[in-house]
Amino acid sequence: MTARYCSPAQAPAPAFATGPAAERLGALASGRRMWANGAVLHYCFFDRDTDASVIPVPGTGMTRRVSWAGAEEQRDVVRACFEDWQDLGVGIAFAEVDDPSEAELRIGFQLGAGSGSAVGRDALSAGRHERTMNFGWDLTAPGERGTALREIGHALGMLHEHQSPFAGIHWDDEAVYAGLAGPPHHRSRERTHYNILRKLDPDEVNRSVWDPESITEFTFPSGLALEPEQYRAGLTPPGTLSAAYKEFALRWYPPAPPSGPATLVPFRSVPLGLGPGGQADFVVDPPETRTYTLGTFGDSDAVVVVFEERDGETRYLAGEDDGGTPHNATISARLVKGRRYFVRVGLYSARGSGETAVMCW
């Protein structure tokens, strides 16, 4: 089977403050793409004639439309892979919707365009009628189901395993460039460097141990890796969710506690008591309809996300990341009496000895 490589969308590095805030880059970089645990991620498939790319026709000066619609059997593979992730027991839920404007994850099937996905919350920066995930080859072919599992992993915020600085892979760079320049990949040197050869910063990866069986690890043939020696003849991961990655997913997205979230009452602060990487969830039942401010205070780096419950399902309403600056994350949102809202606070790191708390006012 020909090795196929996906290309998560290239996103600019976040602009963090200098000075003391720069010292907190590690905590921020490792979690900034992850979703708030407990969220429902809605996905949709493009399926209309208007859902298409306009691409040039080589040598003609003309363009043509290429559909993003996928056959039902292709969609079924992706649906089954969402179920595989869900069956791990993660605190994230997935729901299919028909309207792209209602989906955080929008999936196309443009053949020949490669497979790739926005990484985690980077999907929120894409336009509402743009793809955040594409599949460029037949997912029903033998061995290709792992592609869908991998792209969903990227959508959850997980990066390429082979780019981990802890992998210890020493590539034959020119062999990699040459191997990916021709069919079926046709990749530029820049794209190959970004998705294959470039090492992630140690502070950017989420795990300190390389997992060669990870779903985000690529198959690569012999002659590309010089070290570790046992992989000079190539590497073929199983294309399934490895035990280490299951543990990783459950650590980032643990199941909700049976007790449910605490209630956040207006004008009453609640201490967070979180460690780095922790999350606290609260429910808000507004006593009146008005614009509320929700946020943290104290010496910490945090992200605050607000969801609204609609028809028994949580929908993203607003979010704010303090970005490692001295300013606390706060959100102003109109909350309606009779509706229920959920506030989720994720802590990157706490500084000093002061108390960190959340309040609605």
Rank of each mutant, 00 (worst) to 15 (best):
R106I: 10
R106L: 10
I107G: 01
I107V: 15
G108K: 03
Q110L: 13
Q110H: 10
Q110N: 10
Q110V: 15
Q110D: 09
L111E: 10
L111K: 10
L111V: 12
A113M: 15
A113Y: 12
A113P: 08
G114E: 06
G114W: 00
G114Y: 01
G114C: 08
G116Q: 09
G116W: 05
S117C: 13
S117N: 08
A118M: 12
A118I: 05
A118S: 13
V119I: 14
V119T: 12
V119Y: 03
V119F: 02
G120Y: 02
G120N: 06
R121Q: 14
D122P: 09
A123D: 09
A123K: 08
L124S: 11
L124F: 07
L124I: 06
A126W: 12
A126Y: 14
G127P: 11
R128Y: 00
R128T: 01
R128S: 08
H129T: 14
H129V: 15
E130R: 13
R131Q: 10
R131Y: 00
R131K: 06
T132Q: 15
T132G: 13
T132E: 11
M133P: 08
M133C: 14
M133D: 01
N134F: 06
G136F: 07
G136Q: 10
G136D: 11
G136S: 12
G136T: 12
W137P: 10
W137K: 13
D138N: 15
L139Y: 03
T140M: 13
A141L: 11
E144T: 12
R145I: 07
R145H: 13
R145W: 06
R145Q: 12
R145M: 12
G146P: 07
G146T: 05
G146Q: 09
T147N: 13
T147L: 11
A148W: 07
A148P: 09
A148Q: 03
L149G: 00
L149P: 00
R150S: 10
E151C: 08
E151A: 05
E151Q: 11
E151R: 00
G153C: 06
G153V: 03
H154V: 06
H154I: 06
A155H: 05
A155C: 10
L156G: 00
G157A: 06
G157E: 02
G157T: 00
L159Y: 04
L159W: 00
H160N: 08
H160K: 04
E161T: 00
E161K: 01
E161Q: 11
E161L: 01
H162E: 12
H162Q: 15
H162P: 03
H162F: 11
Q163P: 04
P165D: 03
P165G: 02
P165F: 01
F166S: 06
F166K: 02
F166C: 08
F166H: 13
A167L: 03
G168A: 08
G168P: 07
I169V: 14
H170Q: 15
H170S: 13
W171F: 08
W171E: 01
W171K: 06
W171R: 04
W171Q: 04
D172H: 04
D172V: 07
D172P: 01
